[in-house]
Every structure is written in C-alpha cells, then in structure tokens.
Design a protein around this nucleic acid. Structure first.
Lengths: 238, 238
DNA sequence: CCGCCGGCTGATTGAAGAATCAACCAGTCG
DNA sequence: CGACTGGTTGATTCTTCAATCAGCCGGCGG
C-alpha cells in the first residue's frame, strides 16, 4: 500500500508482513490442513524465512488461533448484528445465511479453514474452538427464542436445536462448495443455494406457511459496516 | 466369547484382539482426536503392547481408515436400504434420520469419530474420506430426484442441495449432542431432536399439501398476522 | 563514511512419537 | 516332554518438525 519510507511507516510495514504471513497461513491451512502442513510451508507460501513466522507469532498454534480470531470474530460480530437488529425473523434468517455466504464469497479459503479446521476440531490446545461454534449457535438461538414467544414458530420446535439446524444447513451447504460437490465458481449456484437454505429452513420452522420471500425476492446486501466497533473483519484480500 | 481352545478358535481369537484394538482406537480417537493421541494411548486403552497394534494394522493411518470403513460402510448400507425401500418420501427422510440417530445411540463415540475426524478431515492421506461423505449425499439425493419428478417437492428445490441440507441438519443435530451442547443421556431429548430434524426438513422441502405421514399435527397458537405481510426484504440492519 | 539498530534469515537443535525387531512365552503337536 | 509356532512385548531406532539463536543485511543517524 503506502510506499512512503517514513518512520511512521515502520509499524505499517511490520503489520503488512504479518498480514502476508497470516494470509499464507490461511491458504496453506486450506490446502493441506493444519496438521498436514509445516511452518516451512507457510513461510514458503508467504515468501519469507522460516524464522520470521516466529517473529510475528509465538508458535504454530497461535497462528491458527489468530486465523480463528480474525475470521470467526468477524463472522460472529456480523451474525450478532443481524440477530440484534430490527426486522422479522425471516429477514434475519436470510441475513445470517447471507453473512455466511458473503464471507465465503469474499474469502472461500478462510471459510474453509474455519469450517474444516476450527469449528470441528476436537478439543485442542488453548482456545476453545468447540465453544466458539457453540456460542454462535447459542447466539442465534435467541432469535428463535424470541420468535417462539411471539408465536411465529411451530409449537414443537426447540429454539436451540432450530439454531443448530440452521447452522448445520448453512455449513453443509458451504461444505458442498468447499469440497467441490458443487461448483463454487458458479455465482448463480451460490445464490440459489443461499436462497434454498434460508427458504427451506424457514418453511420448515415457521408457524405460518409462506415466508413470502421466495428466492427471487431476496437480494443480498453487502455487510458494510457494523453498528459499533468495526474492527476485526473477515480476512479480505486487498 | 467362546472360551474353547480348539484350533478352529484360533482365527477367532485373532480377530478378537483386532477388534479390541479397533474398539480402543475408536474410544481414544473420540476422546483426544486422531492427532491428539499416540499409538501408545490406543495400546494402553486396549490393554495390549505397543507393537501389537502394528501387528494388526500397517500404521496409524490404516487404523483410522479401518475405523472409517467399519463405521461408515455400515451407515451407508443402512441409508441405502432406506433410500431404496418402499414408502413415501417423508417416511424415508424419517428413516435416514433414524439410521443416523440409532447409530449414535448404539455407539456415540464411533459416531463422534466419524463426524469429527473423518467426515470433515481435510484432504488427507490415501482414502477419499471427503468422497465418502459426498457419496452418501449423492445417494440420498436420488430420493429427492425421484420425489421432485413426482411433484412432491417445492419447485425451487435442488435435489442435491436438499440432500446436503438434510445431512447438514442431521450432522449438526448430532454434533449438538457430541459436543455436549445438548445432553445425550437424555433419551427424550434425542427423540425430540430426531423428530424435529425430520419434520423441520420435511416442512421445508415438501410441496405444500401436507402428506399424511407427517408427524403430530401442530396447531399454531395464533395466526401470525403481521409477519406474513412483511417481506423478508426488510433491511437486516438499519 | 562508519557503526548501530532492528527486521530478517535459515542452519541447528532436540523433543516427540511413528515404526521396527529381536527376544519372549503360551500353547500345541508329535 | 521337548521341539515348534506364532502371537506378544517394549526398548531401540529413525524421522519429522516445532522452535531457537547466532548472526546477516540495509537503512539511518551521526
């Protein structure tokens, strides 16, 4: 970015290096998996020396953890914005699906790492990745708790499970693309999948029939800004 | 098992040892994850010596692969039986869900390993674990292809994606128990989850007229009046 | 022009653990 | 009852990497 060599630029260049490494880590993790790659692979991908990775990250695990923080917290922030925003349930469900698919559109590899490495990885080291996933489900379950109190949902639905099912559907939908079951270069397929996931789920869960919003009516929006602190975002390519 | 010491018993005892080790592997993998455990842990769990594991399995990976073969092929066989059997779609969907939950009831740890270690593991060694999961989805997608031709499904559903969503819902439902989000000792909760997954999915995917096979008829507490008028197009955030 | 400073390098180390293998022993058979 | 078989053992070897650290530039201030 900035080409100036001023002293102030120093910190800039530092964090740029850091970002390069992080980016490389995401790519390599996505390609070979966390356990399937060496720090050397990450360094090579980033075009830096082996040891530099350790200059910016305490260890391999912190690298993954940072990938996690960066990507996941951004995702959760956006989901929270949707959940806590105004509007009917159907809009929010579409919103949650949108957030997930938008993240995928922006950076499929990062999403792949989140899904394949972090969300499902067995109880690991420091961070509680398991918990992270569970937290997101709990968060969006508030949606369904409120909706159920308002009588919007079928009587026999459990809010927590509903929330889990939504995420399950989203995740498996994305997995279909991540694993190549579906062609992720096909933008239309992505749109259709998005619509079908939200609609299927809504049809399944809503008390009254038509949620009205068939796929055609739904237009994706760019998650532009967060309510308060727009900070750590899903990794983006410049 | 048979205590006789006849010669014919030999082969029996061999495979019994093997099964013991396999069983131990499942337990240890479920507890600490494939990468998080040593062969020594498996041996200890099985109550055998380190080296014996290598007498029955070529290496650590073959161990996991065998766990996979054993568990997954059984699952797929049952799913195939359901898919190729007679009956309405709704019964089959319930059947598939049943198969998954029954597997969990019978051997939760094995299911945990399948879900956490195998189905989602990144492109790893030889075996096509990725493919296996995809195959199951393809298999059950035939269900939806046929149902759609029969006009049983909403027009805008993609069979393959529907199948993926069903498995996604099942998997996340099970994950809720596997990770402790829900209490898996609570048999009722399992039953309820099972029913809700199948019903939610069916409601979401079936063409409107509810087929007789549907489970308990639910009653809306009140027709949600305003909700239906508000399109999902509503802004997901102000 | 020199020498310092901090980002950067990559050979080196050593821990962890997968895989091996020579010895051991519990049965079995002649 | 003694030779034999093959399942079983676990110390030993060998490999793989994560993590270290002793220095190398290259810019910058003096």
């Amino acid at each position: 970015m900035a080409q100036s060599k001023s002293a102030a630029d120093n910190g800039n260049r530092e964090s740029e290096r850091r970002r390069t490494i992080l980016r490389a880590a995401i790519d390599v993790f996505a390609r070979k998996g966390y356990h399937g790659c060496r720090i050397a692979d990450v360094a090579k991908e980033a075009g830096v020396a082996y040891g530099l990775v350790y200059h910016y990250f305490k260890n391999k695990d912190e690298l993954l953890e940072t990938v996690f923080d960066t990507g996941w917290s951004g995702f959760v922030t956006r989901v929270r914005a949707v959940v806590e925003g105004e509007g009917p349930l159907s809009a929010k469900v579409h919103g949650v699906v949108d957030v997930a698919f938008e993240a995928y559109r922006v950076d499929p590899r990062a999403v792949k790492v989140l899904i394949l490495e972090i969300a499902r990885s067995p109880a690991g080291s420091r961070i509680n990745r398991q918990t992270a996933f569970v937290d997101a489900i709990r968060l969006s379950s508030e949606l369904f708790i409120r909706a159920k109190e308002a009588g919007e949902l079928r009587a026999d639905t459990d809010p927590l499970l509903s929330s889990a099912l939504l995420f399950g559907a989203i995740e498996m939908g994305l997995t279909a693309f991540v694993t190549g079951l579906a062609d992720s270069r096909d933008a239309q397929a992505l749109e259709r999948a998005k619509a079908q996931i939200a609609d299927t789920f809504l049809h399944g869960v809503l008390a009254d029939a038509s949620p009205g919003a068939e796929s055609a009516a739904w237009k994706p929006e760019k998650p532009s800004s967060e309510k308060s602190s727009t900070k750590s975002k899903a990794p983006k390519r410049p």
